Simulated assay, not measured.
Amino acid sequence: MEYRRLGSTGLTVSPLCLGTWRFGKESNGTLETDRETAHDLLDAAWEQGINFVDTANSYGGGRSERWIGEWLADHDREDFVIASKVWWRTRGVPKTSLSRKSIRSEIQDTLERLGTDYLDVYYIHRFDDGTPLRETLRTLDDLAREGTVRYLGASAGAAWKLTKALWESDREDLERFEITQPRFNAAYRDEVADYLDVCADQGLAVCPYSPLEGGFLTGKYDRYGEAPAGSRGDLEGWNDRFDERQWRVLEVVRSVATETGATPAQVALRWCMARDRFTCVPIVGARTVDQLEENAGAVDLSVTDDQLDRITDAYADVEGAR
């Protein structure tokens, strides 16, 4: 696997990141991904050359971090880039916070569950309007200077909040956000366009979650048929969730998949990885080893600029406009 530099950082990561938000997550009393399956997925990811693992203190109520830590104990920690997040609180009140007290408490628990003394990337899961931005940034800067955290990141949020945080960090000579994690994919762009403009201008890496738009870009949805059982669209009026532009994107993704002998999921992931305005490392959250291996096939998929442009153009509101 050909690794890449993560934005302006010194980190070298695989072109795909393993997302673990399903680890330990309960839906209707059933674990979406149990401990054994989680370890199988981590094994498969490492066998495919994926060295970048994303988690959060809130995933599975802490079970995601704990299961990763158990698996990591049998491997060389230095081989991996481990990212986690803070905003949700696993204990105490309020339920969400980026105060100094909360961040200090949560990072201690995160490191304990992961069985490591540092994180490669530490994201804020959201911005916290209830805590002064300066307090949050100074606390994160302290963690970076202490070596507890190598690099800082910001997940979802408004473009102006990200810009303000970068400005404040530069003005106060604090460690700044270097990696972002917005929702972004070939069928979801306008809503995050301003945010991505900031990332491109400031040299921030983009590690999008939901790069397959919740399974939509896998091609499993039929515009005029029924939603697949157990899918996120498995409800009345499911096809109203997707607009005309998204269906056009899916049609072109399917066409390119046929032309290249790939799957729609591989084509959609390859489109993300091919972004040239910023480093883009999609986060894939496979349910099974087979799904993960399919996703990993996107890394070596060969697509032409024309094929990528066709996918880009399909999202345009006006013919010919991007």
Results as ranks from 00 to 15, higher is better:
Gly203Ala: 07
Ala200Val: 07
Pro208His: 06
Phe242Lys: 02
Val198Phe: 01
Asp170Met: 06
Gly233Tyr: 13
Arg245His: 11
Glu236Ser: 14
Asp222Gly: 13
Asp173Ser: 13
Phe177Asp: 06
Pro228Ser: 14
Glu146Met: 15
Asp194Arg: 05
Phe216Asp: 03
Tyr195Leu: 07
Gly230Cys: 13
Ala229Pro: 01
Ala187His: 05
Gly230Phe: 13
Asp222Trp: 04
Leu212Glu: 02
Asn185Glu: 04
Phe184Ala: 01
Ala187Met: 04
Ala158Tyr: 12
Ser231His: 11
Asp240Trp: 10
Lys220Asp: 08
Tyr224Thr: 10
Glu213Asp: 14
Glu146Phe: 15
Ala262Tyr: 02
Glu146Thr: 15
Tyr224Trp: 10
Arg223Gly: 07
Trp247Arg: 03
Arg245Ala: 14
Leu196Phe: 06
Arg145His: 13
Glu259Phe: 10
Thr148Lys: 15
Leu166Lys: 06
Leu162Glu: 06
Ala144Thr: 15
Glu213Trp: 12
Asp173Asn: 11
Asp194Glu: 12
Ala154Pro: 01
Cys199Met: 05
Pro228Cys: 15
Gly215Tyr: 02
Leu196Met: 11
Ala205Phe: 01
Asp173His: 08
Thr258Asp: 12
Arg241Thr: 13
Ser169Met: 02
Lys161Ala: 10
Glu244Lys: 08
Ala265Asp: 03
Glu251His: 05
Asp173Thr: 08
Asn185Pro: 02
Gly214Ala: 15
Gln246Val: 08
Pro211Val: 08
Gly261Gln: 01
Asn239Glu: 10
Asp240Leu: 14
Tyr195Ala: 04
Ser155Asn: 10
Ala262Met: 04
Ser155Leu: 10
Lys161Thr: 12
Glu191Tyr: 03
Arg223Ala: 11
Gly230Glu: 11
Val206Tyr: 00
Thr180His: 00
Tyr221Asp: 00
Cys207Met: 15
Lys164Glu: 11
Asn239His: 11
Phe216Ile: 11
Trp247Pro: 08
Glu259Met: 14
Tyr224Lys: 08
Val206Leu: 06
Pro182Cys: 07
Glu172Asn: 07
Trp238Leu: 10
Leu235Ser: 13
Val198Asn: 01
Leu166Ile: 03
Thr258Lys: 06
Arg241Asp: 10
Ala265Gly: 00
Ser210Val: 11
Lys164Trp: 08
Arg150Ser: 15
